[in-house]
Amino acid sequence: MGRSVKKGPYVDAKLLKKVMAQKGTGQKEPIRTWARACTIIPEFVGYTFLIHNGKIFQKLFVTEDMVGHKLGEFSLTRVFRGHGGVKKKEMRIPGT
């Protein structure tokens, strides 16, 4: 079910402010954010975000195709390590 048009897209106010601040100065530093529910609006294109996934911040460079999606869609919260019994356990990938 879509959000009502009357309200417009949900954009995190603080995040928007940060983006606008960067726009003024012209620098493009990655912006750290927890606002996964924030819709990506055309103003965000070309900026890099660090989106929290509950554990770490995942880097995302926003391109034009991503407009209309939410930030959280690009920062997965689950890690799938694969199924399988004894064999797979030995091949387990170290790290994270």
């Binding site: 391109t63 195709d65 991503m66 999606h69 959280g72 869609e73 690009f74 997965l76 799938f80």
Partner: peptide
């Protein structure tokens, strides 16, 4: 294919 390429959750599900 657009969803697949932008690396979003839905695209991921399509891929796997």
């Amino acid at each position: 294919s657009l969803l697949r390429n932008i690396g979003c959750y839905r695209g991921m599900r399509h891929r796997i």
